[in-house]
């Protein structure tokens, strides 16, 4: 029984094998026939890139790129706390290692009340303002004097945004008075552009202090004037002579020719690593003067000259104390 069944199934399997092979062949033929008659366009698998999503992603990256290094709010003169915090290591490096700044007489500065700091100007770029402001801020965390910058520099493209973020303000009476009234100390350079444009042989000889605008601001706002002498900064950019012709085309007052600029191109703009000494002098109080003293031209001119000689004395002390330009 079992044999028979075995045989039977074997035969059956054999015949069905043949049959299914024939059938498969016929089916394959039919399929080929169908395929050849009705060709199906084979689509190659395409890697789909979502361009819109990619573009949006890039846009988001680009638009937030600039925001990481600045804050959404600035103070009313454009100083940006986040930019300052990020610039602090660089400013510290310049302060401690590059110019090895010494600060004398920080105790003479009024503790909290605003004052008008008056210093000698040097160099085309306002490194001196940055350094004095940084020096005072390192010792007095609640005070960061705003430094005033000449017109042509504060409107110079590419320089202007950075200066404003680091605390630079265009030098004019309205700005100085507004800053002092808001409780900030202001660092001014009454020599103005004449100071920045001093050639090397005129270094540390103070130019005229404007027309007494500094004294006038102090009298208007009733704050003390603090003279400051900066020694070293005037050798950082030793201007050999001024070149006027090419500067006029670029809208600059003049083109300084230093030992390194324009010889080494943009690298020539790097200041020399001279040794700096910042001396803060005794504050000049104006409390004893009557409120209407601001209209006394002779008094203002006398005070202005007095202030100039005080800054000059501070510079001269610094010069006689130091050994060399580099030490």
């Amino acid at each position: 029984m079992s044999d028979e069944i075995d045989l039977d199934t074997q035969v059956g399997a054999e015949s069905s094998d043949v049959l299914s092979a024939e059938l498969r062949e016929a089916l394959d033929g039919l399929r080929d026939e169908i395929r050849s008659r009705f060709p199906v366009r084979q689509r190659a698998p395409v890697e789909t890139i979502d361009w819109m999503a990619l573009a949006q992603q890039i846009q988001r990256r680009l638009s937030t790129l600039g925001m990481s290094e600045r804050s959404g709010e600035v103070d009313e003169f454009g100083m940006d706390e986040i930019v300052l915090r990020r610039a602090r290591p660089l400013l510290d490096l310049l302060y401690e290692r590059y110019w090895r700044v010494d600060l004398h007489g920080i105790d003479r500065l009024p503790d909290t009340s605003p004052c008008l700091l008056v210093a000698n100007r040097s160099g085309l770029l306002p490194y001196d303002g940055l350094m004095v402001s940084h020096a005072i801020w390192r010792r007095r965390a609640n005070q960061r004097p705003r430094f005033m910058v000449a017109d042509w520099l504060i409107t110079l493209p590419f320089v202007q945004p950075f200066l404003a973020q680091l605390g630079g303000v265009r030098a004019c009476r309205e700005n100085a008075e507004r800053l002092i009234r808001s409780g900030a100390s202001v660092l001014v350079f009454p020599e103005g552009q004449k100071g920045a444009a001093k050639v090397f042989r005129e270094r540390y000889r103070l130019k005229r202090f404007g027309r007494g605008g500094v004294v006038r601001v102090a009298l208007e706002t009733r704050v003390p004037i603090v003279p400051i002498g900066i020694v070293g900064a005037e050798e950082a950019h030793p201007i050999l002579f001024k070149w006027h012709a090419p500067a006029r085309a670029a809208g600059l007052p003049f083109l300084p020719v230093t030992p390194t600029f324009p010889l080494f191109g943009p690298f020539g703009f790097l200041p020399l690593p001279t040794k700096w000494v910042i001396r803060i002098g005794e504050p000049i109080s104006i409390d004893h003067l009557a409120p209407d003293a601001a209209s006394d031209e002779l008094l203002i001119s006398r005070m202005n000259e007095d202030l100039r000689s005080k800054v000059q004395t501070l510079i001269d002390t610094g010069l006689s104390d130091r050994g060399s330009v580099w030490e």
């Binding site: 638009s63 959404g72 709010e73 600035v74 404003a164």
Partner: peptide
Amino acid sequence: GVLPLSTILRVAGKR
């Protein structure tokens, strides 16, 4: 208050 132009544009996500 004031804001720099570039901050204004970036806050809005403009290119």
